[in-house]
Amino acid sequence: MRIIVGIKWVPNTQAVRFDPETGTLIRRGVPSIVNPHDLPAIELALRLRDSAGGEVIAISMAPPPAVKGLELALGMGVDLAILVTDRVYAGADTLATSYVLSHTIRKIEREYGSVDLVIFGQETIDSSTAHIPAQVASWLEWPYIYYVREARILDNKVVRVVRELEEYIEEYELETPAVLGVAMRSLKPRHVSLSNKIRARFEKKLIIWSNNDLKLDTRCVGLKGSPTIVAKTIDMPEVPRRKEVYKPRDARDAARWIISRMLEDEKLRELLQRTLWGVKS
Protein backbone atom coordinates (compact mmCIF):
# COMPACT_ATOMS: atom_id res chain seq x y z
CA MET A 1 0.00 0.00 0.00
CA ARG A 2 1.31 3.39 -0.91
CA ILE A 3 -0.79 6.22 0.45
CA ILE A 4 -0.33 9.89 -0.28
CA VAL A 5 -1.67 12.51 2.04
CA GLY A 6 -1.95 16.15 1.03
CA ILE A 7 -1.17 18.88 3.54
CA LYS A 8 -1.77 22.60 3.39
CA TRP A 9 0.22 25.10 5.42
CA VAL A 10 -2.27 27.81 6.32
CA PRO A 11 -2.24 31.00 8.38
CA ASN A 12 -3.79 30.37 11.76
CA THR A 13 -6.97 32.27 10.97
CA GLN A 14 -7.86 32.43 14.64
CA ALA A 15 -4.90 34.79 15.03
CA VAL A 16 -5.91 37.29 12.37
CA ARG A 17 -7.37 40.25 14.18
CA PHE A 18 -9.46 43.14 12.98
CA ASP A 19 -8.22 46.52 14.16
CA PRO A 20 -11.27 48.75 14.54
CA GLU A 21 -8.88 51.68 14.98
CA THR A 22 -7.48 51.45 11.45
CA GLY A 23 -10.17 49.30 9.86
CA THR A 24 -7.70 46.72 8.62
CA LEU A 25 -6.86 43.10 9.30
CA ILE A 26 -3.73 42.64 11.36
CA ARG A 27 -1.71 39.85 9.84
CA ARG A 28 1.66 40.79 11.31
CA GLY A 29 3.27 37.90 13.05
CA VAL A 30 0.46 35.44 12.39
CA PRO A 31 2.09 32.03 12.44
CA SER A 32 0.97 29.25 10.13
CA ILE A 33 -0.21 25.79 11.08
CA VAL A 34 -1.08 22.56 9.34
CA ASN A 35 -4.66 22.97 8.13
CA PRO A 36 -6.55 21.41 11.08
CA HIS A 37 -8.84 19.48 8.73
CA ASP A 38 -5.78 17.72 7.29
CA LEU A 39 -4.94 16.13 10.63
CA PRO A 40 -7.73 13.49 10.45
CA ALA A 41 -6.55 12.77 6.89
CA ILE A 42 -3.01 12.10 8.13
CA GLU A 43 -4.43 9.97 10.93
CA LEU A 44 -6.52 7.90 8.51
CA ALA A 45 -3.52 7.36 6.21
CA LEU A 46 -1.39 6.21 9.15
CA ARG A 47 -4.09 3.85 10.44
CA LEU A 48 -4.46 2.26 7.02
CA ARG A 49 -0.71 1.82 6.75
CA ASP A 50 -0.47 0.42 10.27
CA SER A 51 -3.11 -2.21 9.48
CA ALA A 52 -2.20 -3.08 5.90
CA GLY A 53 1.50 -2.25 5.75
CA GLY A 54 3.17 0.00 3.22
CA GLU A 55 4.10 3.63 3.43
CA VAL A 56 2.57 7.08 3.73
CA ILE A 57 4.00 10.00 1.80
CA ALA A 58 2.94 13.52 2.74
CA ILE A 59 3.01 16.18 0.02
CA SER A 60 2.53 19.90 0.14
CA MET A 61 2.83 22.61 -2.48
CA ALA A 62 3.89 25.69 -0.54
CA PRO A 63 6.69 28.16 0.12
CA PRO A 64 9.70 26.80 2.10
CA PRO A 65 8.42 27.65 5.64
CA ALA A 66 5.89 24.83 5.15
CA VAL A 67 8.64 22.34 6.03
CA LYS A 68 7.53 22.93 9.66
CA GLY A 69 4.15 21.45 8.75
CA LEU A 70 5.70 18.48 7.01
CA GLU A 71 7.94 17.92 10.04
CA LEU A 72 4.81 17.67 12.15
CA ALA A 73 3.46 15.03 9.77
CA LEU A 74 6.78 13.17 9.93
CA GLY A 75 6.59 13.40 13.72
CA MET A 76 3.16 11.79 13.57
CA GLY A 77 4.71 8.90 11.65
CA VAL A 78 4.52 9.66 7.94
CA ASP A 79 7.34 7.80 6.13
CA LEU A 80 8.38 10.46 3.68
CA ALA A 81 7.48 14.10 3.11
CA ILE A 82 7.84 16.03 -0.11
CA LEU A 83 7.67 19.80 -0.27
CA VAL A 84 6.90 20.99 -3.77
CA THR A 85 8.10 24.54 -3.95
CA ASP A 86 9.03 26.95 -6.68
CA ARG A 87 8.62 30.63 -7.37
CA VAL A 88 6.64 29.81 -10.50
CA TYR A 89 4.00 28.06 -8.37
CA ALA A 90 3.20 31.21 -6.40
CA GLY A 91 -0.25 32.76 -6.67
CA ALA A 92 -1.93 29.48 -7.62
CA ASP A 93 -5.68 29.00 -7.31
CA THR A 94 -7.16 25.55 -6.72
CA LEU A 95 -6.92 24.57 -10.38
CA ALA A 96 -3.21 25.33 -10.69
CA THR A 97 -2.56 23.78 -7.28
CA SER A 98 -4.37 20.56 -8.11
CA TYR A 99 -2.48 20.43 -11.40
CA VAL A 100 0.88 20.56 -9.62
CA LEU A 101 -0.24 18.08 -6.95
CA SER A 102 -1.49 15.57 -9.54
CA HIS A 103 1.84 15.74 -11.34
CA THR A 104 3.62 15.32 -8.04
CA ILE A 105 1.64 12.13 -7.52
CA ARG A 106 2.54 10.95 -11.03
CA LYS A 107 6.19 11.58 -10.30
CA ILE A 108 5.94 9.67 -7.03
CA GLU A 109 4.55 6.75 -9.00
CA ARG A 110 7.49 6.91 -11.39
CA GLU A 111 10.08 7.14 -8.62
CA TYR A 112 8.65 4.99 -5.83
CA GLY A 113 6.02 2.76 -7.47
CA SER A 114 2.27 2.81 -7.87
CA VAL A 115 0.05 4.82 -5.53
CA ASP A 116 -3.07 3.22 -4.05
CA LEU A 117 -4.79 6.02 -2.20
CA VAL A 118 -4.60 9.80 -2.09
CA ILE A 119 -6.14 11.31 1.04
CA PHE A 120 -6.97 14.95 1.68
CA GLY A 121 -8.69 16.89 4.40
CA GLN A 122 -12.14 17.89 3.26
CA GLU A 123 -11.35 21.60 3.08
CA THR A 124 -9.02 24.27 4.46
CA ILE A 125 -9.65 26.86 7.13
CA ASP A 126 -8.24 29.70 5.02
CA SER A 127 -10.29 29.27 1.86
CA SER A 128 -12.86 26.49 2.43
CA THR A 129 -13.34 25.69 -1.26
CA ALA A 130 -13.09 21.88 -0.89
CA HIS A 131 -11.96 21.88 -4.54
CA ILE A 132 -8.56 20.25 -4.24
CA PRO A 133 -9.43 16.59 -3.64
CA ALA A 134 -12.05 16.59 -6.40
CA GLN A 135 -9.77 18.36 -8.87
CA VAL A 136 -6.82 16.08 -8.17
CA ALA A 137 -9.14 13.10 -8.71
CA SER A 138 -10.22 14.51 -12.06
CA TRP A 139 -6.66 15.18 -13.23
CA LEU A 140 -5.72 11.62 -12.29
CA GLU A 141 -9.05 10.22 -13.52
CA TRP A 142 -9.44 8.29 -10.28
CA PRO A 143 -12.67 7.84 -8.32
CA TYR A 144 -13.30 10.27 -5.46
CA ILE A 145 -15.34 9.98 -2.30
CA TYR A 146 -15.77 12.81 0.17
CA TYR A 147 -16.93 13.20 3.78
CA VAL A 148 -15.14 9.97 4.58
CA ARG A 149 -15.18 9.04 8.24
CA GLU A 150 -13.66 5.57 8.15
CA ALA A 151 -11.87 3.37 5.69
CA ARG A 152 -10.65 -0.19 5.73
CA ILE A 153 -8.49 -2.10 3.28
CA LEU A 154 -10.33 -5.27 2.22
CA ASP A 155 -7.66 -6.72 0.03
CA ASN A 156 -4.81 -5.24 -1.86
CA LYS A 157 -6.98 -3.52 -4.44
CA VAL A 158 -10.24 -2.78 -2.62
CA VAL A 159 -11.06 -0.29 0.16
CA ARG A 160 -14.31 0.01 2.00
CA VAL A 161 -15.14 3.55 3.08
CA VAL A 162 -17.88 4.90 5.27
CA ARG A 163 -19.12 8.37 4.76
CA GLU A 164 -21.55 10.17 6.89
CA LEU A 165 -23.93 12.65 5.37
CA GLU A 166 -26.37 14.69 7.31
CA GLU A 167 -29.18 12.17 7.39
CA TYR A 168 -27.68 8.85 6.43
CA ILE A 169 -24.52 6.83 6.31
CA GLU A 170 -23.17 5.38 3.08
CA GLU A 171 -20.70 2.57 2.62
CA TYR A 172 -18.71 2.15 -0.55
CA GLU A 173 -16.33 -0.45 -1.79
CA LEU A 174 -14.01 0.90 -4.38
CA GLU A 175 -11.03 -0.24 -6.33
CA THR A 176 -7.78 1.55 -5.87
CA PRO A 177 -6.29 3.86 -6.89
CA ALA A 178 -8.76 6.34 -5.45
CA VAL A 179 -8.96 9.76 -3.84
CA LEU A 180 -10.62 10.32 -0.45
CA GLY A 181 -11.70 13.55 1.23
CA VAL A 182 -11.81 13.04 4.99
CA ALA A 183 -14.57 14.65 7.02
CA MET A 184 -13.54 17.29 9.51
CA ARG A 185 -12.95 16.08 13.04
CA SER A 186 -13.73 12.51 12.05
CA LEU A 187 -10.63 11.00 13.64
CA LYS A 188 -8.53 12.16 16.54
CA PRO A 189 -5.01 12.79 15.25
CA ARG A 190 -2.14 11.14 17.08
CA HIS A 191 0.62 13.19 18.68
CA VAL A 192 4.11 13.82 17.42
CA SER A 193 6.61 11.30 18.75
CA LEU A 194 10.24 11.90 19.62
CA SER A 195 11.56 8.81 17.85
CA ASN A 196 9.64 9.62 14.65
CA LYS A 197 11.09 13.10 14.66
CA ILE A 198 14.64 11.89 15.24
CA ARG A 199 14.30 9.21 12.58
CA ALA A 200 12.96 11.70 10.05
CA ARG A 201 15.92 13.97 10.73
CA PHE A 202 18.62 11.30 10.49
CA GLU A 203 17.17 9.49 7.51
CA LYS A 204 16.55 12.75 5.67
CA LYS A 205 12.90 11.96 5.07
CA LEU A 206 12.04 15.46 4.02
CA ILE A 207 12.76 16.14 0.36
CA ILE A 208 12.13 19.17 -1.77
CA TRP A 209 11.05 19.19 -5.40
CA SER A 210 11.00 22.27 -7.56
CA ASN A 211 9.82 22.77 -11.11
CA ASN A 212 13.23 21.49 -12.22
CA ASP A 213 12.04 18.12 -10.94
CA LEU A 214 8.42 18.29 -12.10
CA LYS A 215 9.13 20.09 -15.40
CA LEU A 216 5.61 21.47 -15.78
CA ASP A 217 4.60 24.00 -18.39
CA THR A 218 4.88 27.31 -16.55
CA ARG A 219 1.71 28.52 -18.27
CA CYS A 220 -0.28 25.93 -16.33
CA VAL A 221 1.03 26.70 -12.85
CA GLY A 222 1.11 29.57 -10.39
CA LEU A 223 -0.66 32.80 -11.14
CA LYS A 224 -0.54 32.19 -14.91
CA GLY A 225 -2.36 28.89 -14.60
CA SER A 226 -5.04 30.29 -12.33
CA PRO A 227 -8.29 31.38 -13.95
CA THR A 228 -9.91 32.32 -10.64
CA ILE A 229 -10.40 36.03 -10.11
CA VAL A 230 -11.14 37.27 -6.64
CA ALA A 231 -13.55 40.06 -7.40
CA LYS A 232 -13.87 41.46 -3.91
CA THR A 233 -13.33 40.45 -0.31
CA ILE A 234 -15.58 41.74 2.39
CA ASP A 235 -14.90 41.55 6.07
CA MET A 236 -17.97 40.50 7.86
CA PRO A 237 -18.13 42.59 10.98
CA GLU A 238 -19.15 40.60 13.98
CA VAL A 239 -22.81 41.09 14.76
CA PRO A 240 -23.27 41.87 18.41
CA ARG A 241 -25.46 39.29 20.05
CA ARG A 242 -28.50 40.41 21.92
CA LYS A 243 -28.93 38.09 24.82
CA GLU A 244 -32.30 37.40 26.29
CA VAL A 245 -33.39 34.79 28.75
CA TYR A 246 -36.84 33.27 28.41
CA LYS A 247 -38.18 30.49 30.57
CA PRO A 248 -40.55 28.49 28.34
CA ARG A 249 -43.27 26.16 29.59
CA ASP A 250 -42.36 23.52 27.05
CA ALA A 251 -40.63 23.06 23.69
CA ARG A 252 -43.60 24.31 21.72
CA ASP A 253 -43.74 27.47 23.78
CA ALA A 254 -40.00 27.98 23.33
CA ALA A 255 -40.24 27.58 19.55
CA ARG A 256 -43.16 29.95 19.38
CA TRP A 257 -41.28 32.54 21.39
CA ILE A 258 -38.12 32.26 19.26
CA ILE A 259 -40.06 32.61 16.01
CA SER A 260 -42.04 35.55 17.27
CA ARG A 261 -38.81 37.30 18.29
CA MET A 262 -37.30 36.61 14.87
CA LEU A 263 -40.35 37.94 13.10
CA GLU A 264 -39.96 41.20 14.93
CA ASP A 265 -36.69 41.78 13.11
CA GLU A 266 -37.18 43.08 9.62
CA LYS A 267 -34.19 41.36 8.01
CA LEU A 268 -34.85 38.07 9.72
CA ARG A 269 -38.52 38.19 8.82
CA GLU A 270 -37.71 38.32 5.15
CA LEU A 271 -35.18 35.50 5.46
CA LEU A 272 -37.59 33.32 7.39
CA GLN A 273 -40.35 33.85 4.89
CA ARG A 274 -38.12 32.94 2.00
CA THR A 275 -36.41 29.91 3.49
CA LEU A 276 -39.01 28.40 5.79
CA TRP A 277 -42.21 29.27 4.01
CA GLY A 278 -41.01 29.85 0.47
CA VAL A 279 -42.68 33.24 0.34
CA LYS A 280 -41.05 35.75 -1.98
CA SER A 281 -41.14 39.27 -0.68
Binding site: G53, E55, Y112, S195, I198, R199, E203
Partner: peptide, 11 residues
Protein backbone atom coordinates in the same frame (compact mmCIF):
# COMPACT_ATOMS: atom_id res chain seq x y z
CA UNK B 1 7.52 -1.46 -1.49
CA UNK B 2 10.54 0.64 -0.75
CA UNK B 3 12.64 -0.83 2.00
CA UNK B 4 13.56 1.68 4.64
CA UNK B 5 16.91 1.27 6.28
CA UNK B 6 16.23 1.13 9.99
CA UNK B 7 18.68 3.61 11.40
CA UNK B 8 16.72 4.61 14.44
CA UNK B 9 18.83 6.86 16.57
CA UNK B 10 17.99 6.00 20.12
CA UNK B 11 21.21 6.95 21.82
Amino acid sequence: MRVLIAMVRDR
